[in-house]
């Protein structure tokens, strides 16, 4: 099943797009951190956005998820900085 990947705030600014669809998770990519590492190899913008996974947060299917949690079979994954609302 296709997976939508969303980029928000400065992650979007660096990647240069708001979202994209991948057909499936690449083999061996089973956590948000692993996906971030895989994405970081797609170009300079991605590399800049994903070089420091400590600064990234992630939501899987609209639930805040730890960067090292198992991904399972997600439909939507969002990467963003730590939140700063309020």
């Amino acid at each position: 099943m296709a997976i939508t990947i969303l980029y928000l705030a400065w992650v979007r600014d660096r990647v240069g797009i708001t979202e994209e669809v991948i057909e499936m998770l690449p083999s061996g990519v089973d956590t948000p951190t692993a996906l971030a590492r895989w994405l970081s190899q797609r170009g300079d913008g991605y590399a800049s956005a994903f070089k420091d996974t400590e600064r990234l947060r992630c939501a899987v299917d609209l639930q805040m998820t730890a960067m090292d949690a198992p991904l399972g079979r997600p439909r939507e994954i969002a990467f963003f900085p730590p939140v700063t609302g309020g």
Binding site: M64, P81, P82, V83, T84, G85, G86
Partner: peptide
């Protein structure tokens, strides 16, 4: 709300700078 709700602030300044607020 400040640590869990997915909002992000960007500040714009008179000199043209635009900066994402750090947590």
């Amino acid at each position: 709300l400040k640590t869990e709700a997915p909002f992000w602030k960007q500040e714009s300044f008179a000199d043209g700078r635009a900066i994402w607020v750090e947590p």
